[in-house]
Nucleic acid binder design. Sequence first.
DNA 1: TTAGTTGCAAACCCTTTGCGAGGTC
DNA 2: GACCTCGCAAAGGGTTTGCAACTAA
Lengths: 167, 167
Amino acid sequence: MASRIERLCVERGLKMTGQRRVIAKVLSEAEDHPDVEELYRRAASLDSRISVATVYRTVRLLEEKGILERRDFGGGRARYEATEHGHHYHLIDIESGRVIEFEDAEHEQLMRQIATRLGFDLVSHRMELFGRRRTGAEPGADRPNGDGDIVAEQDGGRARDRNGVTR
Amino acid sequence: MASRIERLCVERGLKMTGQRRVIAKVLSEAEDHPDVEELYRRAASLDSRISVATVYRTVRLLEEKGILERRDFGGGRARYEATEHGHHYHLIDIESGRVIEFEDAEHEQLMRQIATRLGFDLVSHRMELFGRRRTGAEPGADRPNGDGDIVAEQDGGRARDRNGVTR
DNA sequence: TTAGTTGCAAACCCTTTGCGAGGTC
DNA sequence: GACCTCGCAAAGGGTTTGCAACTAA
């Protein structure tokens, strides 16, 4: 059974090698935002005949094909997630590195208006929040969570310095 | 007459060397978002006894002191601007690399609410728009510009590939 | 005088690439 | 068989750092 991403690769006419199949599987199963090193680690544990170079090449290729999206959460390394689950944004816990996804329907619309007002067509945008967990408040604990905002929560990446924070 | 940034350095107790004075001057006079290479070029033209390493060290120091803010507009190099003119955001012209600043008072408030809802205190956030100049519409041409949105427009940096755009 | 700063070059880190070998369609 | 892809190791590009000389306070 081909993984979801493997099917997308085939659809887009990519030659499916053993390595790509493994990387596609890893990506299909990832529920977080792994960087290349992490993808390599996961892929290599399934098939040790894979090199980092191939992971870099594959990830770049899939991004060009629109199958993957590259993210920059600071820290100097790119992180990836599959293009699929509708638009969402990220809140990064600056202490643990954990990434929380959330939706905000108003935003895209709002940004488009701003660009238009400035005389531009909006091609893309990015927005990340960096925060610290409120003391005495587990996420979704004080507020029953059921309002559909939290799409997912994961990623135990270690927090890093100099992460490009806006302030 | 010490430059604005030089005064801030002194206030913060930094030892003022000749190199720092020059870099402070360059930063004080910059009206764009130069990267280190550009800062070095400008500084070296005022005093050739400056090395890139010093620019890197100074810029990092000033950022830690809250005098400078580091920005990431994609392209892999950090860009800097003085902490001062109130909060604003950036729209990057993906064709020319030009950066347009704009304000959006609602945003910070909105983002803070989102973070709060997720159980976090908002420490910082970033948002960048990437757009293409609408054909037949010079910025502020079709719309008389007088609504106070455009704070500044400058930066002739060349556009770059793989610039970390969200989509 | 003393602790902090500089230039230089080497080191780092992430990512890309040239090349010959190997695989896919 | 033609063309693509792989692993390896080297190269790149931005940024940091060790060290000895130097300098602001």
